[in-house]
Write a protein that binds this DNA or RNA. Structure first.
Lengths: 228, 228
DNA sequence: ATTTTCTTTATAAAATCTTTATACTACAAG
DNA sequence: CTTGTAGTATAAAGATTTTATAAAGAAAAT
C-alpha cells in the first residue's frame, strides 16, 4: 500500500526537512522543490501520487500553481499554508485542492489526511503471480490458468502445485512433499505422491506422457520447471 | 454538478437547522437524522452522495457509526466534531472519513470542502457497479439486477454476494466468508454457507444446477466469476 | 398476527481421497 | 540377450468427505 511518491513544494527549508523526515519514516517516497518553477518541473517529469503544496511561494502565487497543476494532474493535492482566511481556503479547494491544512500543522493529522487522500487513488492490486509461460499461478486468487483458461484443481492438487511453483527448479524430495502436503505422518505414502503427480500432469502438461513441467528425479523426488 | 443528496447526522437541532438552510440554499438535497440509528437507516434506504456525520451522537459513538457505514458506503463522509484532539482526527480519517472539521466551523469553508469531496465522486461517475453481463451489482445502491429486473435479496444474501462481487475471481475460503458475514464466532458453521449459497444460486443463476457465477472450490471455499 | 428471514436437521448427490491392481521403465546381474 | 528388481505411472474401484437442497422449526421484522 505504501511507497507512494509524494512531492513537497515549499520554500521554507525547515518545513521541507520536517516533511522529508516524517514522510520518509512512514515509507513514503519523497521529492521536494523550493519554488513553483522547480515544483512544476518535477511534477511533470515524475508525476507523484500526491502533492503537498505551500501557497506562499517566492516566485509565483500558490493559487496560480494549483491551477496550472490541475490542468493535467489528477492525483490528490494537499495545501499547506500560513493563511487561515476562509477566502483563501475556499479559493484553494475550489481550484482543485483536495485538502487544506493551516500552519503550524500537527504531523499526525497531516499523515492521516495524506492516507485518506491516497486511499481513493491507490487501489492495491498486487497479485503475486508465478508466471511460467503458458502456465500462470495466482497465489492470492488461488487459481491456475493455462493459456488464460482456468484449470480446476482439487485442494490437494493445488497444495502440491503451489509448492512446486514456489521452488521452481529445485528438486523436492518425496519426504518433503509428503510432509508438506499430507502431514508428518504420511512420509512413507509415496504412492499418494505418484497418484497426485499423475493427476497434475494430466491437467497441466500438454503431453502428459512427456512431462515438461513436473520432472521425475528417480529415487529422489520431483522437480518443477518453468518454461519461458 | 449540484442537486447532490447530502445526509446530515447530528443530534444538535441548531446545527441541523443551520446545515439544512445553508445546504438547501446551495442547491443540495438535504435529509437529516438526529441519532446514529436513524442515520444508518436513512443512509441504507436512500444512499446519499455525501454524509456529514457528527461524532458526538447520543446513542452510539461516531467512530463506530463511521465504521458501520464504511462497510458498504463508498461516497464521501465528512466528519463534524467538537473534538479537536489529534487522536480523534487521525482515528476518524483512518476509519474512512474523507475530511474532518472542528466545530464551530465556517459555513463557507464547509461548503468548499463539500464541493471538493463531491468533485471526485460526481465527475468520474464513480458508481461501483460490478457488471457481469446479465447480472449487475450496484454496491452503492445495494441493488442487484438480472436482465434489468431487480432481484430481492435478504440482508445476509446481499452481504455474501457483495463480498463475492468485490473480489471477483478470487477463491474465498469458508472461514473468511463465515467470519465476514456472520462474525468470528461462526467459522465452523459451514452449513450456513451452503444453505445461503444455494439460495443465492437459486436467485441469480440461470441454471442453478450448473452454476456459472458462484463456483464451488471443494474443501476450500467458493469463487465468483463475472462472465462478460 | 402474519410474513419474512434465519437456523437447524436430514438426506441425497457429487467430489475427492485412498487403496488396489497392473503395467511400464531403467538398469544390473546372470 | 534374457531375467529380475526397484522405482515409477496410471486406471479404476471402494471409502470417505464434502456439498446441495429441501423442509421444518425458531426468531425477527413488519
Amino acid at each position: 500500500m505504501n511507497n507512494a511518491a509524494i512531492l513537497v513544494i515549499d520554500d521554507e527549508v525547515q518545513i521541507r526537512r520536517l516533511l522529508e523526515i516524517t514522510l520518509e519514516s512512514n515509507q513514503f517516497n519523497v521529492s521536494s522543490a523550493d519554488c513553483a518553477k522547480e515544483g512544476l518541473r518535477i511534477a511533470a517529469s515524475h508525476p507523484p501520487d500526491l502533492i503537498i503544496l505551500d501557497l506562499g511561494l517566492p516566485d509565483e502565487h500558490g493559487h496560480s500553481v494549483l491551477k496550472k497543476l490541475r490542468e493535467w494532474y489528477t492525483n490528490p493535492i494537499l495545501i499547506l499554508s500560513a493563511q487561515s482566511d476562509e477566502e483563501d481556503i475556499i479559493k484553494a479547494l475550489d481550484n482543485g485542492a483536495n485538502d487544506y491544512l493551516v500552519k503550524p500543522f500537527r504531523t499526525g493529522e497531516l499523515l492521516a489526511r495524506i492516507r485518506s487522500a491516497l486511499r481513493s487513488t491507490l487501489t492495491e492490486d498486487n497479485n503475486p503471480v508465478v508466471d511460467c509461460g503458458e502456465l500462470q499461478i495466482d497465489l492470492s486468487a488461488r487459481t491456475i490458468k493455462k493459456n488464460n483458461e482456468v484449470i480446476k484443481l482439487t485442494a490437494t492438487e493445488y497444495k502440491l502445485l503451489s509448492l512446486f511453483a514456489q521452488q521452481e527448479g529445485k528438486v523436492l524430495t518425496h519426504q518433503y512433499l509428503l510432509r508438506e502436503v499430507w502431514g508428518p505422518g504420511y512420509i512413507n505414502q509415496s504412492q499418494y505422491l505418484r497418484v497426485f503427480v499423475a493427476q497434475l500432469r494430466k491437467k497441466i502438461e500438454t503431453d502428459p506422457n512427456r512431462p515438461a513441467y513436473i520432472i521425475t528425479e528417480s529415487g529422489v523426488g520431483y522437480r518443477f520447471i518453468a518454461k519461458e
